[in-house]
């Protein structure tokens, strides 16, 4: 359970900036219902970008919090990519 909580704590830092930028890009690229689909498509690529910016480049020391929960960098990257793909695909299917 602590691993799941740890993953959520890690991921939630990425949600707001990724969602905000994805919506902006969706509005720029689509109209009507296509906005949501384009936002979902953008979200798949933008979240890993924010992962890189927020954790690897700006706060690399924070990784130690997650390492102590047994989460390696590889596992955190995997979680980011997979979760973002799932959320992105759901939005694209709407």
């Amino acid at each position: 359970m602590r691993i799941i909580n740890g993953l959520w704590v890690f991921y939630r830092k990425l949600v707001i900036p990724s969602a905000a930028l994805s919506v902006c890009l969706g509005l720029m690229m689509g109209t009507g219902m296509k906005v949501i689909g384009m936002a979902g498509f953008s979200y798949i690529f933008i979240t890993p970008f924010f992962h890189l910016m927020i954790y690897d480049l700006t706060n690399p020391k924070e990784y130690y919090f997650y390492y102590n929960l047994g989460l390696s960098k590889l596992m955190l990257w995997f979680a980011t990519v997979v979760t973002s793909i799932i959320i992105g695909l759901i939005l694209m299917a709407i």
């Binding site: 602590r2 909580n5 704590v9 939630r12 020391k61 924070e62 130690y64 102590n68």
Partner: peptide, 25 residues
């Protein structure tokens, strides 16, 4: 094994109470 690094490693976006609840049983 837990490791306390030299520099601060606490997640900056959540409250201390939540950090404790995630980290400790």
């Amino acid at each position: 094994i837990h490791y306390l690094p030299q520099d601060s490693f606490l997640p900056k976006h959540i409250k201390v109470e939540d950090i404790i609840k995630v980290f400790c049983k």
